[in-house]
Design a binder for these strands. Structure first.
Lengths: 146, 146
DNA sequence: AAGTTTATGAAAATGATTATCATTTTAAGA
DNA sequence: TCTTAAAATGATAATCATTTTCATAAACTT
């Protein structure tokens, strides 16, 4: 967490941007939350601490966080972007239950390797990927007909 | 193509919906096109054949095509949905060059298998997935500095 | 053919995100 | 510490793809 802040400060400095109380507050709150946050959710949390902060500032900050590598944009395809903090976290993909919307973070090293191979086979050098697996979780399968 | 139309008619009937000249025209044009189409692109093509068709009808039709299993929504994450016709086509994922936006359709049976395994390991039964690989294609790598 | 339902097109609405702009802060230098 | 140019802020308007609305026009039913 302190590390992440240091990274952000460095990013800010390298871009000749400036640290402000708003950015500091937003960063603090963002880092404290696990999982995925929409801009609106984050804005609500920030407003509770300081109602004077505008939502444009939150949107702008999330872009900066993504650029700096501290956050990652996650797009489940429902029209709302989510952000998760990435600092000190492993890469992962998402497994989503289409019935209860439960999300599980998953990784499979072998799949990662095969993705590289597949890309290379087509002459590409991979820079990233997004993989969402959709299915029905065990609980939902047990509760059929409820 | 005739098969796809029959499938759509059956879908229409099963839902107590109605076949109309507009729907027929849109379906025709949609099936003729390979690759991905945005609603706007499809609308433009439809307009050329019949300028009286409204774009809401095209949007509505694309939803129906997705529901019926004839089309698939593809979301590259750039804010515009694309649709591809799925009828008689193999499942595939997408490899996208982030420099020139070239899209290649790819499949890797082994990855598909591992996705099933990964989901099962977490108690899920897979119903679908979306996988987008982003990278730089060979041509773009050769043209660095242009 | 009459009646009921569904479809259509035009236009307005939506909703997340981005841009604008006047004003306020920030950080660096004098 | 004071000045100042650059950057940040918040309120609001603008975007833009997609959905809704609603009055009118087909399409099935009987």
């Amino acid at each position: 967490m302190e590390k992440a802040k240091a990274v952000f400060n460095e990013f800010i400095a390298s871009k000749n941007l400036r640290m402000t109380p708003q950015r500091s507050l937003i960063l603090d709150i963002f880092l404290r939350k696990k999982g995925h946050l929409t801009a609106e959710q984050l804005y609500d949390m920030v407003k509770r601490k300081d109602p004077s902060v505008g939502q444009a500032t939150v949107y702008r900050m999330l872009k900066l966080l993504s650029e700096s590598g501290i956050a990652r944009e996650v797009d489940f395809g429902d029209g709302v972007l989510r952000y998760e903090h990435l600092y000190g976290r492993e890469h992962h993909d998402h497994l989503i239950c289409t019935r209860c919307n439960k999300e599980v973070e998953v990784v499979d090293e072998e799949i990662e390797r095969l993705q590289e191979r597949l890309a290379k086979r087509h002459g590409f050098v991979l820079t990233g990927h997004r993989m969402y697996l959709y299915g029905i979780c065990k609980e939902c399968r047990n509760n059929v007909g409820e």
